[in-house]
Amino acid sequence: MVQSAVDGDAAAWKALVEGMSPLVWSVVRAHRLSDADGHEVFQTTWFRFAQHLGRIREPDKAGAWLASTARHECLKVLKGLARLTLTDDPRVLDRASEDRTPEETLIDLEEAADRAERVRRLWQELDGLGERCRQLLRVLMASPPPSYGEISAALGIAVGSIGPLRQRCLRRLRARMDTRGAV
């Protein structure tokens, strides 16, 4: 697909964008950027990918390339903010989008209200897991499921530590859901 896009195939590019956007977005979200910064990082990542298209030697690593580029841009944003607001509370970065999406509103209208409630609770519980778990799970849940190579590039953690961390984080989340569910 990367090769077809290099050759000028717009349909191949579209397939790449649709297949990889959720991964890039998950990296942005994992780093808790503000919406404005996150949007710019997302765009910068794709603009740069378009520039590098003909130079990517291993097309099957395009996902890892995108994830790694997005991560580095996220880290630059955080560094720039730290430089501007040295004494400020770092929690200003901690701005999850509270706006309800149309999809979310739609869920409310559906009969499966308890299922929607569980989904929403799942989402809230993520924040209580600790930063490492929250980051890992946010990237892990991109669609289609990212490879461990892509996750490694997205978060700068060794491929070998992803499996055990994934297991620990998922079980911690499950435990939190069970505890709250029983109340």
Partner: peptide
């Protein structure tokens, strides 16, 4: 979680 992300935090 994947389904939750697609609904609650889509691109």
């Amino acid at each position: 979680l994947r389904q939750a992300a697609a609904v609650l935090d889509p691109v």
